[in-house]
């Protein structure tokens, strides 16, 4: 079943288009990672998906029904979708009453409310804080409370804005495990935003990437800011993240002195064992393997080449190369592996 279907959806602020989605389908019961840089339109899209704001144009279909963004309709729809903010706001009251708010306005009986709240607090391991003031909780506990507050409402969809961005590693693991468990147990559709491609890969069934308000067909990794420098004879050197010199193959923009964004397609990077940098060679980077993880038919390798470059290798190619963490490798890029954004 399709949970959301967006067609030609745009959003504008002060005449500037900040979101322009041609088509997007979100299947129910899945976990989606929404990736994108700051200002890519993630929060705007979440505000539309959570029915907090109407798009400037386009059509939104929710669970098979077209949404007309009328006040009464929105209020009903909001009760089926809950958004958890990156910096969750807790009402100035106890942990218990924060969770109780949504249940109370839904007219749930007191006995039922107490049972649901206790269950939600158990789920996020905050039962000991039931009567505590929400303001006394740490960042990680606050994020867990926000999730408990959302989960208690048994939503069809949960939208989590960077749920692990501001919590420690321990809480990140707890939150990831919790979202996975909720999705498995309740089949609640979960969408979360993230800058972290690896986190998204570990948690999401599908990923959606936004770039300047538009959906792009990249995997939101290997996108680097860069500037260009002349190296004589018309040759240009690209400084990846303004620090790592890289002679890019294929087309290179003319203008210097401005910042660009370049995408290195991880599927099209060829990896060769060994090698060390002696001099700049066109389309070649050197580095060491930092991380490897299996992803279905492929293996994801993170190579430290001064910047972290992701390479996706088919499993059989990986097996032939017999790679290990710490190995020195050479990355070879052909023109079709590079895209200027």
């Amino acid at each position: 079943m399709i949970q959301y279907e967006l067609q030609q959806v745009t959003q504008q602020y002060n005449g500037k288009t900040v979101l322009n989605i041609k088509k997007l389908e979100i299947e129910s019961g899945k976990i989606y990672g929404l990736l994108g840089a700051n200002g890519a339109g993630k929060t705007t899209l979440f505000n539309i998906l959570s029915f907090l704001e109407a798009p400037a144009s386009g059509q939104v279909v929710f669970a098979g029904q077209s949404v007309f963004f009328g006040r009464t309709e929105l209020h009903k729809l909001r009760r089926r979708v809950v958004m958890v903010d990156q910096y969750p706001i807790m009402f100035t009251t106890t942990v218990f009453k924060n969770i109780e708010f949504g249940l109370k306005i839904r007219g749930m009986t007191k006995e039922r409310r107490q049972a649901v709240i206790d269950e939600a607090l158990d789920m996020v391991d905050l039962a000991a804080y039931r009567g505590a003031s929400a303001a006394e909780l740490s960042g990680g506990e606050t994020q867990r409370l926000a999730l408990a507050r959302a989960l208690a409402l048994s939503p069809e969809v949960m939208l989590c804005d960077e749920p692990t961005a501001n919590v420690d590693v321990e809480n990140q693991a707890v939150i990831r495990a919790l979202l996975t468990r909720v999705n498995l147990e309740t089949r609640c559709t979960i969408l979360f935003t993230s800058h972290d491609r690896l986190q998204a890969a570990g948690l999401a069934d599908e990923t959606v990437v936004l770039e300047k308000g538009e959906l792009v067909d990249t995997s939101y990794e290997n996108i680097f800011s860069c500037s260009l420098e002349s190296k004589g004879k018309g040759q240009k050197i690209c400084l990846l993240q303004q620090k790592i010199p890289f002679s890019l193959p294929g087309f290179v923009p003319e203008a210097e002195g401005r910042d660009y964004r370049v995408y290195l397609n991880p599927d099209k990077i060829k990896l060769v064992q060994g090698g060390q940098q002696v001099q700049q060679r066109r389309g070649v980077l050197f580095g060491t393997i930092n991380l490897m993880m299996a992803e279905g038919e492929k293996v994801r390798l993170i190579v430290n080449a001064g910047v972290m470059v992701t390479v996706l290798l088919p499993v059989d190619e990986y097996a032939q190369l017999r790679l290990a963490i710490g190995d020195a490798v050479t990355l070879k890029l052909k023109p079709d592996a590079v895209e200027w954004l």
Binding site: H75, D85, Y87, F101, I105, L153
Partner: peptide, 18 residues
């Protein structure tokens, strides 16, 4: 009062008066 209080209340299902 932070604008997100209003956003939080709405996303938890509150109507305008609530």
């Amino acid at each position: 009062i932070d604008e997100r209080y209003s956003k939080t209340a709405k996303t938890l299902g509150a109507n305008s008066l609530q």
